[in-house]
Design a protein around this nucleic acid. Structure first.
Lengths: 165, 165
DNA sequence: CTGGTTACGTTATAATATAACATTATGTCG
DNA sequence: CGACATAATGTTATATTATAACGTAACCAG
């Protein structure tokens, strides 16, 4: 559990983010190779944009970033949404439903049931990896076959509680 | 726990829904009276539409229903969104983030941390009342002050597993 | 090198949500 | 009562998020 909490906290801890970016990108490359999938330029670009920070971005933010980078081109929404769809399916990113936004996964390719702590002050998002045993047990009692879980907790992070007063 | 599971299951169990509707509506009335709030015609209409079933409805579905009922009037989106905002704030309904939809609460006014089991076959939604102790404990360890939680589990309900094969 | 498949590009539009401001209803206090 | 303050509703326009539909290009298996 302490490992999870530590890893969960990555967005909140100081770390060598250049390296973090590089590692997450090459992890994605490796996973794609293993799965015989194509991490095409577009897909990589979208992933790279999400890897710039550990914050969630809207599809149109990503779109704007793409269009800003590639001056001249005029990229349209479906391109971004298709790349996002791929990255989601392979577990390289997550969708934050309560924000209509997307965020890079800190355990790429695991297809884990992620849980998020979202600070409404600083907007940072921590990803926890724990699955919720109690809830899954309850689903099981009801005979409900779980596919996908969305767990998004909004509140104020420790740091903002100190600073914000 | 068995009580929760039972109540959770209301959308899935046969029950006297006329009565269920009446009870949930009068519960809302009582809560508003207690809190000195106005359950105006519009707000009541929107709640009634959501009480027609235990299924989630989109804002524009509700809008269409309002406009169909009141022939002649041409009600606009902000009216619906404002009523929804009120009903959400008072805990009479919930928002299902992963569907951009709204659903009546089976414990009106409790401001409970609801959790949902959403069947992707029959689209029915069960509301569980349990809060997730493990997750909250973990948030606590991180010093994160929880405000609001979104827990939405998608899968296939027991009934659809039998029928769908 | 050709036919099937996958990914990308383009246009248009659907679906969801809110800003901004005008109007009406409600409660309250002299 | 009646005038004010507040809350709620109504109206117009527009922002934001997402997808349908169809054509083109890239890839790769035989």
């Amino acid at each position: 559990m302490s490992r999870n909490i530590k890893s969960a906290n990555i967005a909140f801890r100081k770390h060598d983010h250049r390296r973090c970016q590089r590692e997450l990108l090459s992890a994605a490359r490796r996973v794609c190779e293993l799965r015989k999938l194509r991490l095409t330029t577009r897909r990589r670009q979208v992933l790279e944009i999400l890897l710039i920070s550990h914050q969630p971005l809207g599809a149109y933010d990503i779109l704007a970033e793409l269009n800003r980078a590639a001056s001249g081109e005029r990229i349209a929404p479906p391109i971004v949404y298709r790349a996002l769809e791929f990255l989601l399916a392979e577990g390289f990113i997550h969708r934050i439903e309560s924000r209509n936004a997307f965020i890079s996964c800190v355990h790429p390719g695991h297809l884990c049931a992620a849980q998020f702590l979202i600070c409404r002050d600083c907007e940072r998002v921590a990803e926890l990896e724990n699955s919720d045993a109690a809830l899954l047990a309850q689903a099981d009692v009801l005979g409900f076959a779980v596919d996908h879980s969305v767990v998004e907790i909004t509140g104020v992070c420790a740091e903002c509680q100190k600073h914000g007063g």
